[in-house]
């Protein structure tokens, strides 16, 4: 027969005895392990888009879809190209039919819901293309809002999604001011551009950079002063998108216009 006093004694002894081996265990922080417990990373991936060079062919979108296994006909994409047309009377038109996967095959502007608008050439005052992709923000709101930590930023700045952990609540999609996130049609988890992380970490370029025939897209390491991308960003006039959100985006644009959304 065990008395109350004995029970308490054994409990305390048991806890004390267990405390020693348990103390040997460390609470695992995935970030720390990922960083290899090193001090600061020597890499910070950034992207540079020269909008003057973009012709809206959509090769980048096509290449991205194939490389990253986003179902080809699904109306979502990790990267896309937007077309902006400003008329002489100051009216702004913009579209991105199927994310410009097949390029811009007609001069008519896609107004959605199957409607198109034709703009006469002589009415156009300026027109240009703007490629879009994840900005790999320095202060990513999508990482902040993920309730289970399925999306995270690695030390070299890229924001990744863990498909095994994502619960599919869509909060990150809501939190992204750039609309780069969506649900993967097959995996049903949050999906986004990750600068082709599987490629860039092996010394290759992203699929879209490789596919661009005009060199409108470039990827680089801003911590490397000799990187050509770094040189351009440091010495030329570049813009970023939606800086008012305080996300500190890391995709830089040459030739950004005030009309770009």
């Amino acid at each position: 027969m065990i008395t109350r006093r004995d029970l308490l004694k054994y409990t305390i002894k048991g806890i004390a005895g267990l405390a020693v081996p348990i103390a040997a265990l460390e609470i695992v922080n995935p970030n720390k392990i990922f960083a290899g417990k090193n001090d600061k990373s020597k890499t910070r991936w950034v992207f540079l888009v020269d909008t003057y060079k973009c012709v809206g062919c959509g090769f980048c979108v096509k290449a991205c879809k194939n490389e990253n296994e986003i179902p080809y006909d699904a109306n979502v994409t990790r990267t896309w190209v937007e077309r902006y047309v400003v008329t002489k009377d100051g009216e702004l038109f913009a579209d991105t039919p199927k994310g410009a996967r097949d390029g811009f095959t007609t001069s008519k502007i896609d107004l959605g819901a199957g409607k198109y608008q034709d703009i006469k050439k002589e009415e156009i005052s300026k027109a240009f293309f703007v490629p879009k992709l994840c900005n790999q923000c320095e202060n990513p709101p999508c990482v902040q809002v993920c309730p289970v930590g399925a999306t995270y930023q690695v030390p070299d700045g890229v924001v990744l999604v863990d498909r095994k952990t994502c619960i599919g609540c869509g909060y990150c999609i809501m939190a992204c001011p750039y609309g780069v996130r969506f649900f993967h049609p097959v995996h049903h988890t949050a999906e986004k551009c990750n600068f082709c992380y599987h490629r860039i970490t092996k010394g290759m370029k992203t699929a879209c950079v490789e596919a661009c025939p005009f060199g409108a897209r470039q990827i680089g390491n801003i911590k490397d002063p000799d990187d050509p991308v770094t040189k351009i960003i440091k010495t030329e006039r570049v813009g970023i998108l939606k800086e008012e959100f305080g996300t500190k985006p890391q995709v830089y644009y040459i030739g950004l216009d005030k009309e770009v959304r």
């Binding site: 896309w80 579209d95 991105t96 199927k98 107004l111 959605g112 869509g170 809501m174 750039y178 609309g179």
Partner: peptide, 14 residues
């Protein structure tokens, strides 16, 4: 149903 210029990934997710 989308109307005018929206980003390609935008839908009513919620």
């Amino acid at each position: 149903i989308k109307e005018l210029f929206t980003y390609p990934n935008e839908y009513i997710y919620w």
